[in-house]
Structure formats: C-alpha cells, structure tokens
Write a protein that binds this DNA or RNA. Structure first.
Lengths: 331, 331
DNA sequence: TACTGTAGATCAAACGTTTTCCCAAGCTTC
DNA sequence: GAAGCTTGGGAAAACGTTTGATCTACAGTA
C-alpha cells in the first residue's frame, strides 16, 4: 500500500502538498499538481481510511445489521429497508448468524470493536442480558421485544392484532371450526400470534385449537395431516407463517378437500412471491417489513446522534385477502 | 466517546498503563487494574477502531459486496456464501444498488475510500471501464464475465452448458417442438442460455424458437400466451429462469394443457422453495450459488494477499429433474 | 529603499491507540 | 553494601492523514 509519503518523495514535495492536491484544497502550482496526480494514479494510491477518519474527526457512519439468515425473505426485505435508509450516508455491515445463537451472540459482542456506531438486531432470540450489556457501549435497535434501557429502541409488529384480524376474517367468512398451526417455539412472536387467534375465537365463543408446528413447509404438512387423520372437523386454518400454510394446503389437497370451500386458509408474513404463485393464492397477514427496516435505521441514527426520543415503534399489520379464504357462500 | 486519556485521568495513571490493562498486557498492580477496569466499564469505553487499526498494523479484513437487489434469492444465497467464507476473519459490507445502475457505479467507485480491502460485484451489468478503473486500486471479483486484468478474478457459471443440458433432457423425454422463453436482455447470461438451447436443438436438427421475455412471472405468462395464441405447436418449454417458467405454467394450465404430458417445462436457477411448491414440481437447472459466493470470497482473499494464481473459476450447473419434465411415455 | 501583498510550498500539531524502551524502588544474595 | 533481579509504571515514537499557521520569494507600489 502506497502512502502520501511515497508520492511526496517521488515528486519531491512535502506530504501536506500532496494531501492538498489530492483533496483539491489550498493552492498548488499547476505543474506540481499534474505531476502529483500522475504519480498517485500510477501508484494506485488510495487514502488510508483509518488515518483519514482519525485526522478529520468526521467518519462515515457504520451500522451493524445482524440477521439469523439472509436467505429468509423476511430478513432480506429488512436488509433492503435498512440499506434504503442508509442511502449514501452510512455503511451497512451485514452479519449472518446462520441461525446459530452462539455465533450470533459473539457477533453482537464483538460488533463494537469494528468501528460500528450502532447495531440492529434482526431477531428476538438474543438474551436480555446481552442486549443490556451491549447497549452500555453502542446504541441498539431490536425487533419484537421492548426494553427499558436508555440506549435501546424497539420496533414491534402488533402480531397479536394481525392474528386476531386473520381469525376474525375466517369467522366472518363462515368458518366455525378454525384451528391454528403455530404457538410453539420459544419465539415471542409465535406466542403472540397464538394469543391473537385465541382472543378472536373466545370473543365469539368458539373453542381455540392450537396445533404445535415447526416453521417450514413440511412441518405445516405434517401438522395438518395429524389433525385430519385424528378425525377433527375443520373448516378453517390460520397458520403462523406462509410456508406452514403452504404445507397445510398440500395436506388438505391430498385429502381432496377443496380450498377455500371446504377449508379456508390464511397465512402470515405475506411472502408475495409465494402467496401469489400457490393455488389457490394464499390470504396472508402482511408485515411492512421493508418499512420496518427503514424505520429501524432511522431510529438508530437518532440514537447515535443522541436524540433518543422514541423508545418503541409499533407497526400494524394488514390482511391481504386472496382466494384461499373466500368461501363462495358467505354467512 | 470516552478515550484512554479520560480513563487515565480519572484513575491517575498514564495512558499506556490503561492500554495495557485493557489489553491484558504488561504487569500492573491488582489494585490499579481493578480500578481501571471499573472506570472503563462505567464510562462505556470502547476503543477507537481507527486508532487501533493504525497503531497495530493489522486491521480486520473488510470486503464490499455489491448486489443489485438483496431480496432476490439468488443474491441472498450469494451473500450467504460470502459470509460463510468470511467467518470470523472478515467483515462484509453489503451494498444494494436497488437495480439502479448509476447508484451501483457510484458505490463501486467509492468503495475504496471506506476501508474496503476488496470488492465482489454480484452482477455483470457494470461497464468494463469501471471494472478496469477500480481494479487499479483494489482487488475485484466479478461474476459471469472474464477480464484480462491483473487485479480481477471471474466466477462464471457455464450457462450455455446448463441450457444445453436442459434442452437435451427435454429432447430425450420425447419433446420435438421445444421453445425457449428468454434470449432478450442486454444480459450476457441470458444470451448464453439461449445459445446453449440453440446448440442442443441444432444438434438433432430441430428448429430453435426463441421467444423474448422479461424476467418475472407475468412476463413468462404473457410470452407463453402469445405463443399459444399464435397457434404454435409446442410440447416442451425451456425457460430462462424459474419465475418465467412458473408464469408459463400458468398460461399452459389456462389452456387446459397438461404438464408434463402435453407440454414439458424446465426452468433455470432452481429456486427450491419455488420449484418444489409449484404444481407440478418444476425441473430446473441448479446453480451452486452459495458455493459460488464462498469461492468468490476465498479468491478475493487470495487476491488481497497477493497470490493471484487463478484468473477464472468455472462452475458447472446440474439439472434437477422434477415432475414438470417427465412425460409418462418415454421415447 | 522599504513596505505590502500574494502565490506557492512547508511545518508541525493533532487524531487515539499500541508498544518498545527505560526508570525507580524494593528486594535478594553473597 | 554493592550488584543483580523483579515489579510496577511512564515517556515517547509510531501509524497515515488533515489542516491551520508559517515561511519564502518575488512582484507591485509609493
């Protein structure tokens, strides 16, 4: 790596002159200027970022974004939102934990040593202690969980309301025996969704039935199959996410049940690519993920600047109705 | 931001002593050590990354990864591969250009000022001049295109061979009137795919028919519909990507054509989530995207270290056969 | 001649660490 | 009681820039 000094020696001027030419400041004779630029280009000189950041006291903002897996469309959208908010003004250091909690905690712990000015934690499985610890050093934005800490702001989606809405929708479409695939997991969000489902059911004196399920397509398939095989009477299914819903649909089709006429189905997350391609197109609760990422970044900037007015930001989901939940005969 | 000096003053010792304690080096009395650690914690002290990088001459490796859109599963997988190769040893700065070529070029141009040691460019639409320029300053890994430059290595997928394989497969399954949806675009890869298709067709004296198409589902649907409405006789379709294939399938179903018995379909990219959920499951040419990302990062490291042995790395795709291309009656 | 102005270039401090070298005091040891 | 160790601690250089202050010619002016 060449440095200013190298250029200075080759052109027989001082370091400061070189610096001035390269930054277009001060007055330097046309002759030297040309020569300096020539040599700099020839050497492939790039200013040392660290030295520069030190000397000017103004460095470029850098935010760390920690996600459990970038290939999950949810986190990809989140990332996109964060990037959007950063624009030209901030760098995004992406850290994928590959769903490895240990790695994730290590990444979070080390983040502050990498010149990161603030950190966005994409999922809610990290321990409260860790959030508290790290927030003692750098500002943090977390999702789905609220913290009473100075240096932390939370972005939450009203999962309970989303689930409530979806269940109400099924009820209003004439479903009476509605099951929920979900509710397991240590995950806070899936518990919230189960609660919203139960609230809607209880409101109209229907009995909630929650069937535990994993989070992918085959888990949805298996769970639905279990329920059907056990002879359960079902005319509506609310699933904790779209993949589970798609698995459930496969199981339903296998039993020659018609969707939505025999059984209506609603998912959660609204992965458009999936929902619109499946047959029939899947109704789903939409989270404004990209917008959430954008807001996360903006709030982080505020936190970094020291204007921490907001401690919590709640997003309200909306229901996207497609064919999978629209029975022909309305009640 | 607190610094070593602050801690030193509060504990009435020298800066060097504080540094030694915080780094666990040198010998310091237990009493001072405790006190220094206490104050450091209380102040929420974090070492200045830039100052540290300067003083030690060993900074952490930082790679810039430029993608046209992270929400595209292809680039998400690529990112994952890059992350994997980076492990604990390197930071990934992700830059999404939102499919805006201008922004992309600006990002690439500026990358070297951000302490980035090397850059991975995720798509092949950037100008050759830019690649040449930037490679004069930092190492570059690009995809899909070969450059005769010192500081550049290319990762290419043998698109032509993938397309050839897919087309051969259709032929061997008894298709004779095979069309290709693709071949438009300035994109090098889609041209390559069209060439592979043509090669396979010509080899057995079948007439290639290439129908121009965009790159999403509705583009595939429209293109297929155009062909069917024009009364074309078709018993096989090879599509330039999976989304186009899914659109084509929708158009075929609309005309009550059975897949694969009336028309066999093969896609490209093998987006598993999509291919396995669609009915019938879609055969597709698989690119080892994640692995490509991994190799890209590894080759970049070599380049940064100065061991630039390899200039080009070719991946061979493989065909994943699912139901959409398996006619019952084999020829 | 002496003064002022100015273009062109350099000096030196500063940014926050790390790390090598050095010093002082106290302790052994013969 | 001098020589040698050990322990605890500080001074200062170095990392590569930036930037305000300063210096030097030399031209113009009175």
């Amino acid at each position: 790596m060449s440095k200013l000094k190298d250029i200075a020696q080759l052109t027989k001027v001082s370091v400061s002159t070189v610096s001035k030419v390269l930054n277009g400041k001060g007055r330097v004779s046309e002759k030297k200027r040309k020569e300096i630029l020539r040599v700099a280009r020839q050497l492939g000189y790039t200013p040392n970022y660290h030295a520069r950041s030190m000397a000017r006291k103004t460095k470029i903002l850098t935010v760390g974004l920690i996600v459990p897996e970038i290939i999950n469309p949810f986190f990809a959208s989140l990332t996109r939102g964060v990037q959007k908010a950063c624009g030209e003004d901030a760098l995004v250091i992406l850290m994928d934990s590959f769903r490895n909690l240990e790695r994730e905690e290590k990444l979070i712990k080390n983040a502050r040593f990498f010149g990161i000015d603030g950190i966005i934690i994409g999922n809610s499985r990290v321990s409260d202690d860790l959030v508290e610890e790290i927030s003692g050093y750098i500002p943090v934005v977390v999702f789905d969980k609220f913290y009473e800490l100075d240096n932390v702001v939370s972005i939450v989606l009203d999962n309970r309301y989303g689930a409530y809405m979806a269940t109400r929708h099924l009820i209003e479409n004439g479903c009476r025996n509605i099951v929920h695939l979900g509710g397991t997991h240590e995950l806070y969000v899936s518990l919230e969704r189960a609660r919203g489902y139960e609230a809607a059911m209880n409101e109209v004196n229907l009995k909630p039935v929650v069937e535990p399920v994993g989070y992918n397509e085959s888990a949805g398939y298996e769970a639905m199959k279990r329920l059907l095989d056990s002879g359960f009477q079902i005319d509506g299914v609310f699933c904790m996410n779209d993949l589970v819903a798609i698995g459930a649909i496969r199981a339903l089709k296998e039993k020659s049940l018609r969707i939505p006429d025999d059984v209506a189905v609603v998912g959660f997350d609204d992965d458009e690519e999936l929902c619109e391609i499946i047959e029939p197109p899947l109704s789903s609760v939409h989270q404004p993920v990209e917008e959430m990422g954008e807001v996360a970044a903006k709030l982080l900037f505020e936190l970094i600047k020291g204007n921490s007015k907001i401690k919590r930001y709640v997003f309200t989901p909306r229901l996207v109705v497609r064919r999978s939940s629209l029975k022909k005969v309305k009640s």
